[in-house]
Amino acid sequence: MKFFTDLWANFYKCFLQYDMWKMYLQGLRNTVIIAVGACLFGLIIGIIVTCIRVAPKNNIIMKFLDGVCKVYVTVIRGTPVVLQLFICYFVLLTGIRNVNFFGIKDTAGILVAIVTFGINSGAYMTEILRGGINAVDAGQMEAGRSLGLSWISTFLRIVLPQALKSAIPTMFNEFITLVKETSVAGYVGIVDLTKIQSYVTVQTMELFMPLLIIAAIYLILVLGLQQIQKRIERRLTRGDR
């Protein structure tokens, strides 16, 4: 019995006291903003890079761009994301580190995180999308081309929509991974959900309870997203084809 009352007291101290939960909420908000932003940015990068990777390479410019994209995907997938974050934060994006847009605290940090995780996620999105495109029957491209549509028109209007559709569940998976992966943002001082722990610890001198609470929040978030993913998957398989 004492165990539970202690636990509750601890929880109260670390979550409810002095509206401490608002801090978690702010961290959660930042985590979600970073994950969603990075996912969208990554999707845009992924679509562009995929276009270049699968386009016919009949001139030197396309060959060069393809080479660049290949290096991008290989390097990003072959190095740890924390390292990429360090490099972006301390080297590439150092210019905006101290900028506070709209007076919102930490905007620059969030932007850096979105860009970094977006660039990272773009490489994975590219591989996912390429898989989706390979899964589209080659007859689709041929049918489009035989009607006189250009490669790019056929790709954008016929192949890509089908590839995106079949890749949505996997891309959603990537989003869920991203939600968890952004927890390293704290390494460069970005106040995401995980980072909140240090703030709570400073105020309460508690270490274990805030970690537990944060883990629970991640878990609830991820389980919720998995439910959504299941629903999306069911809808996609129920729909045409």
Partner: peptide, 11 residues
């Protein structure tokens, strides 16, 4: 051109 597998656009 008309193909054996129709190749209609399913979406």
């Amino acid at each position: 051109m008309v193909f054996q597998q129709f190749n209609l656009f399913p979406h």
